[in-house]
Design a protein around this nucleic acid. Structure first.
Lengths: 238, 238, 238, 238
DNA sequence: AATGAATGAGATTTCATTCAT
DNA sequence: TATGAATGAAATCTCATTCAT
């Protein structure tokens, strides 16, 4: 049984064991460096951190964008399980949402990665599994938001898309690195939650932003068909 | 008696008319491009946008940092008058603070510019007038925050420094440009205000952040006189 | 057992064959051009002369200084063997000294290269092998001078350091290139030797200049061990 | 009575008093800076040192070469009187030659300046007075050398041209600046004299080099007629 | 398949020289 | 006429990407 997770080449053929290992090393190094220094770190440094040559990196990922896509996809996968666990616990939607976004820095990275650039986003469409993971993540987020709103603990004029935007704006490591200040993430995360909590009556301009809007907004120019072609391996975990 | 605003060379001598005009064109172009694409836009593009040669740009500003400083300084000056007007109106501190930060996009740019890099910040110290403007801006912010807290409309576990950080994190045009979404600034500004409004009881980690902390944190190596006038951050805890 | 001469990267690892060849082409081109036009020839020209792109040059030598160091180091190595041969012959120290400096233009280039700039010199300290070669060269020079003085054929109020300075002043190709004259090196080399010959009684201001002085004068900031082996300048005053 | 000394424009018209003053300030500043840092000092620095704008400098001297020519010419004139004095004293030709070259740093600068570049040299041909001063200087040098040789104190296989070459090679301030060593000029000047002193029997390759050779060698490509055209003001000091 | 060398297109900065004020 | 501002052609160096080993 072939799992597709990060283990297939462009044409769907199985990668050699060492090749797959390199692929993973590269993605891990890239995630680290990107999280630390933003999406513009020199390719050579990523290669060095991964312990491979640039050539290898480029053989695996023909350009920077496709590496970003891979990192994003990988991250979604990493997050997928975590997501389910968080939800299972059942401490109330609002609390779950908070701890979900507070503790899982991978989640935050995931939410940011999809929106690094149009091309990153649009390429994501061609990796069916990553897209599926992403959609699961977004669906979970949607559900948590909806439940929290039903509970009455979250204001109803915001949507899951707003949460994604907030995360995307807030947690930019490049920006943070540039701020010559040691500001604690937590403090501003808390403020963000307070902003989202119900009891804040200021009416917001515009309707709640759903994640569907985010996704749709990016899927206009390219092909509209949901999963057009090049789905390397349709079979995935049950 | 003329003030020197924008019209003096490094040594304080008056610039020739055409030179001053170019200087202003450059700063305007730089502000525009920086606001649009962040502080790393090619110098050549800035020059082109200003309608001058690179050489001219470099004659006026020997390196990128000094251009950033100039843009920051200029922006502070542009903001200074506006600041006073806003305050004069007197519709209550909270309302004033909101409209102050909501309407003046220059204010937001100013608050961000000071913290682009340590060197930008530190060079700013040597431009007395820009520093004065900055300090006036920060002092105003401090006052508004304090008053709003006294009014009971703003939570007391945040400080003016927190506002600056939030602005700095939120309104990064480079980041925005990268987001392939047309997100309305207003919406998130509102959320930010709601986060800052009183009635949000979640205790924040850490003490309120004053602007003095921001300024002091960056002023270690150089001159010791922290903030010549415009006392930012008197005590304001409840 | 291979020596690493010219064939190792910065970290001592073996270079690939083609890289080593390029490295050598670059050094050769640089030596040529530097000898012809001084240490300021455009990097791009050096690259062109070597038949490579600038990028290659910069990959090998991250900046101009490090290229100069490499050329110096290489030159020392080239000279090292020659030095021993000259000395072996044994026609009397004075004669040896003369032919040593007369025939080997590489020797002269070497003696000049170490003193192009403080940074060149100081970086040289970190290339152990080049330093060893340099020290061997200087030690040989010291010995020849001392022996010639013992023989009675060389004035005793000069030292090997003086010889280096004279070479350094005389054989500046940039200077020569600028002189719109075809002056024969030999002629002035001969005059220099006559100046150094004994029987010239004019007392010189200052003590004989040893090469140790040259070396020490430049070795203040960095490591304290002055000259690992190849003892330049034992006492040699009459 | 119009004296031509530095006081005429390109077309021979008398310069306004302030213009002449500027011309002199520029030349003085240029001499200083050139002597200190070689013939490549930025034009703007020369202008600044002279207390004028670059525009003024360029109005006076259309390019760098012509400034060098002017500095050379001026220097010759400054030296001319000195030359006569030195000779008048009459302490023996050898002694005179030594003190002549030892004490008058202007003399040394003059001897170097003529040979900075072909164009410098060739342009000199168009400034009749400077050429005359130069020729006087060279003639004096020739005479001193000849007399010293007649006295028996100077070797006869060298000529005044050799002396010029030696000076030209030795006293390059740019070179000296680069040497990270404080070497005393005197010491090497003394050595040079010892080289030139009789009693040094090593036969030199080639014939004595006369200054005529220097001059002739540079006058081939251009026009051969001694003072072709454009002698701005033939009348000069009686 | 892996490596890392080579490439060349920018980006920054300097400075000789021209030109508007 | 004096000024110094404007220009643009180098020169240095970096890095994404391609290609030989």
């Amino acid at each position: 049984m072939r799992t597709s997770a990060g283990g297939t080449g462009r044409d769907g053929t199985r990668l050699r064991a060492d090749a797959r290992r390199n692929r993973e090393l590269i993605i891990a190094a890239a995630r680290e460096l990107i999280a630390e220094r933003g999406p513009d770190v020199p390719m050579e440094e990523i290669a060095r951190a991964a312990g491979v040559g640039v050539g290898t990196l480029y053989r695996r990922f023909p350009d920077r964008e496709s590496l970003l896509v891979a990192v994003a996809g990988d991250n979604y996968r990493r997050v997928a399980a975590e997501v389910r666990n968080f939800v299972r616990e059942g401490h109330g939607a609002w609390h779950t949402l908070r701890s979900f976004l507070s503790h899982a820095s991978d989640v935050r990275l995931s939410l940011r990665l999809a929106f690094f650039s149009e091309r990153t986003f649009s390429m994501l469409k061609h990796d069916a599994e990553a897209r599926r993971s992403r959609d699961e993540l977004l669906a979970t987020l949607e559900r948590l938001v909806r439940d929290a709103q039903t509970e009455g603990s979250m204001r109803t004029d915001v949507g899951a898309g707003d949460v994604v935007v907030l995360i995307g704006l807030f947690f930019d490591p490049a920006r943070r690195a540039r701020l010559p200040l040691a500001v604690p993430d937590d403090r501003y995360l808390m403020l963000m939650f307070d902003a989202l909590h119900s009891g804040n009556a200021t009416p917001l301009p515009g309707p709640p932003l759903g994640t569907d809007v985010l996704v749709r907004q990016l899927a206009t120019d390219d092909d509209a068909s949901p999963t057009p072609q090049g789905e390397p391996s349709p079979d995935h975990r049950p």
